[in-house]
């Protein structure tokens, strides 16, 4: 397939996943603030930290009020990671590869974009009841993943779409753990309290992991939550799961046998995967959660750069 097309499929998929994750963050945070008058009720700032754009935010909006944060995360066209910007870019990418994706995918992305544009015209409604809007974004996002699986041949373009989605999802799950872990752990006095359970549940909910976690571990225990979201082999939003799938797609695209590689990107993802395969949550906690996640994100960035030079940048010298 054309390198440019592979690049666009990959980014289309990443932006769609990013938009969905931003909606997840907003929705869960909103639920947390609904508690009656405790100190969580005004917590909108951590959301800005999750997306990594806090400097950009405080420069332009100042105080992290609910309305400011929601405007910034959902509808701000100058925020490169807002839902509307993500959809605009996903759609631009989809537009340049309309002949590769199925008609129904294009149609759905187009509807998605128009839905968000319409919502942006009446932001007050979204500020007051973010859940409904976030639910729609999540549902359409999931519909698109389903359509990609059921209407697109599982050949090269599909694998590039999956790699994009998996890298983006791994990155977002890692960010949400990073921020929430930092916020949650210091309040040791709360451990085991109702409030603590609510906060940790919220973390699981934002990754749609609560029910699956309960089946696996039952009671909410911080280390088990981190284990579930980082290392679980079967939960589709865990970092480990995403890396395994990304590696699988890369290997199929490159045509390498298991355990071997042709490209640098395969090597990077392979090392990362093996480490996650054999890491225990205790190792991570001992080393420091933040350091672990920081390193993980750096390596995801390396992986992205390597994919770019291995597949998207076909120089004359090829």
């Amino acid at each position: 397939m054309l390198s440019r097309v592979a690049d666009s499929v990959y980014w289309m998929s990443r932006y769609l996943e990013r938009a969905e994750n931003v909606a997840r963050f907003i929705e869960v945070n909103h639920n947390l603030t609904l508690g009656d008058g405790d100190e969580l009720s005004q917590q909108w700032e951590p959301l800005v930290y999750i997306t990594g754009d806090h400097e950009h935010f405080s420069e332009r909006f100042g105080a992290p009020t609910r309305d400011n944060v929601l405007q910034f995360l959902a509808f701000d066209r100058e925020n490169p990671n807002s839902i509307v910007t993500c959809l605009e870019r996903a759609r631009e990418n989809a537009r340049s590869i309309r002949e590769v994706i199925s008609m129904s995918i294009w149609e759905q992305i187009n509807k998605f974009y128009h839905m968000v544009l319409a919502a942006a015209k009446a932001p007050g409604v979204v500020y007051n009841t973010p859940s409904e809007f976030c639910e729609r974004v999540k549902t359409i996002g999931n519909t698109l993943v389903g359509m990609t699986d059921t209407t697109m041949s599982h050949g090269e373009p599909w694998h590039f779409a999956r790699i994009g989605r998996m890298i983006e999802r791994a990155d977002k799950t890692s960010r949400i753990i990073d921020v929430q872990y930092y916020l949650l752990l210091p309040t040791t006095s709360d451990i085991g309290s109702t409030l603590d359970v609510i906060r940790w549940s919220a973390l699981l909910k934002s990754t749609s992991a609560l029910e699956m976690y309960r089946r696996e571990h039952g009671r909410i225990v911080p280390a088990a939550v981190a284990d579930f979201l980082i290392l679980n082999r079967y939960f589709p939003r865990s970092m480990h799961f995403c890396i395994v799938r990304a590696q699988e797609s890369l290997r199929l695209i490159a045509g390498s046998h298991t355990g071997t590689f042709h490209f640098r990107s395969e090597k990077i993802v392979g090392r990362l995967r093996s480490e996650l395969d054999y890491t225990h949550i205790k190792d991570i906690v001992e080393r420091g959660m933040h350091e672990f996640i920081d390193d993980f994100q750096t390596r995801l960035n390396d992986l992205g750069a390597a994919i770019y030079s291995d597949f998207f940048l076909q120089s004359e010298a090829t």
């Binding site: 397939m1 054309l2 390198s3 440019r4 097309v5 592979a6 590869i97 309309r98 002949e99 090269e156 590039f160 695209i253 597949f311 998207f312 076909q314 004359e316 090829t318």
Partner: peptide
Amino acid sequence: IQLVQGSDLLVRDNRVFMRTT
């Protein structure tokens, strides 16, 4: 068929090629 832009194509030895993965 493939939809290409100018930057997807190159000419070498008087033959036209497209850049693929």
